[in-house]
Simulated scan of single mutants.
Amino acid sequence: MTVALIDDDSAVLHSMRLLIESRELPVACYESAEAFLEDLPETKPSCVVADVRMPGMSGLELQRVLKQRNHEAPLILISGHADVSMAVEALKEGAFDFFEKPYDGERLASSVNDAVQKGRRQSSENSERIDIAERLKALSPRQREVLEFVASGMSNKQIAAKLSISPRTVETYRAWVMERIGAQNVADLVRKVSAFLPQDPKA
C-alpha cells in the first residue's frame, strides 16, 4: 500500500518523495487533489499527505470529500500559510496530523510511518468486517439465534430451554457457528460479531 503525496509545488513534491522513499515506503505523487481522486478507485493508499492551499480543490476540501466517501486512510495536511484555527479545524475533522512549512523532515517521516501503520490496521479491520458480514449471511435463522444467545453469555442448557431443543443439539449448532465464523473461543466470537448483533438478545 502506497503513501499518496499531493502538492502543486513540484519541488516540494520531489523533496517529500525522496524523504518518504528513504523510509522504504512506496510513494505515488499528484500535483492536485483532483488528480488524486481520479486515481483513487485503483489505488488504495495507506496514508495521504496533502498541501492545504492548492489551485482547485484545497487540502481541507479533499479531507471533506474523502470523509464523504468513507475513505479511511489517515490524512496528514501541510500548509505554508497555516494558522492555529486551520490546524484545529483539520484535526477536529479527523486529520491524523498537521504540519506548517518549512516542516521538520524527520518528524513528518515519523508521522507518515505512524499513519501508514494505522492505515494498514484499518484496512485489515475493514476486510475482517466484510468477511464476518458474509459469514453471518450464510447462517440459517436457527444458527443465527444460537449465535446471538452464545454471544450474550448464555449456557447450552439455557439456550436449549429458550429454543425448546436439546443441549446436545445446541452444542452441535454452537460448534458449527464457531467454525463458520472462524472463532477460537466465545471471547473471540463476541469480538468478531458484536458489531453485527442487536444490543439485547431475544427474550
Score class of each variant (00 low, 15 high):
83 D>M: 02
150 V>G: 01
164 S>E: 15
132 I>M: 05
87 A>K: 07
142 R>I: 10
169 T>K: 14
109 A>E: 06
121 R>Q: 12
123 S>G: 09
168 R>C: 03
142 R>E: 10
136 L>V: 05
170 V>M: 01
110 S>L: 14
144 R>P: 03
148 E>D: 02
160 A>G: 09
169 T>M: 13
117 Q>K: 15
151 A>Y: 04
87 A>C: 10
86 M>Q: 12
119 G>M: 06
109 A>H: 03
110 S>F: 09
83 D>G: 09
123 S>M: 06
84 V>K: 13
166 S>D: 09
156 N>M: 09
111 S>A: 15
145 E>D: 11
99 F>K: 00
99 F>L: 00
168 R>F: 11
82 A>E: 10
170 V>G: 00
107 R>V: 13
126 N>V: 13
145 E>W: 15
111 S>N: 12
109 A>V: 13
109 A>W: 02
86 M>H: 10
97 D>K: 03
142 R>N: 04
115 A>C: 04
145 E>Q: 15
123 S>R: 08
107 R>P: 02
97 D>T: 06
169 T>C: 02
134 E>M: 14
134 E>W: 11
154 M>V: 01
161 A>T: 14
149 F>E: 05
160 A>R: 02
102 P>C: 11
139 L>K: 00
145 E>P: 04
123 S>Q: 14
89 E>A: 12
124 S>Q: 13
119 G>D: 01
88 V>C: 02
112 V>F: 08
86 M>F: 05
135 R>K: 15
100 E>F: 03
140 S>C: 08
137 K>D: 09
96 F>S: 09
126 N>D: 13
155 S>T: 15
139 L>W: 00
95 A>M: 05
102 P>W: 10
92 K>W: 01
158 Q>E: 14
163 L>N: 10
169 T>W: 07
147 L>G: 00
86 M>V: 12
124 S>M: 11
114 D>M: 14
118 K>A: 13
166 S>Y: 07
82 A>I: 11
124 S>H: 06
159 I>R: 00
132 I>Y: 04
92 K>T: 04
149 F>G: 03
112 V>S: 08
155 S>V: 08
95 A>Q: 05
161 A>P: 07
91 L>P: 05
93 E>I: 00
128 E>D: 08
129 R>V: 15
137 K>E: 11
162 K>G: 05
164 S>R: 13
136 L>D: 05
140 S>I: 07
123 S>C: 03
139 L>A: 08
161 A>L: 10
104 D>G: 06
103 Y>M: 07
152 S>K: 07
150 V>P: 02
161 A>I: 07
98 F>C: 06
100 E>I: 12
103 Y>C: 10
123 S>D: 10
102 P>G: 05
136 L>Q: 01
145 E>A: 12
120 R>Q: 12
159 I>K: 01
132 I>C: 03
94 G>K: 04
125 E>K: 06
115 A>T: 02
150 V>S: 03
165 I>M: 15
165 I>A: 08
167 P>W: 11
114 D>K: 15
116 V>P: 02
95 A>L: 04
146 V>R: 00
87 A>Y: 09
163 L>Y: 04
161 A>D: 13
135 R>D: 11
138 A>D: 14
107 R>L: 12
163 L>I: 13
109 A>N: 04
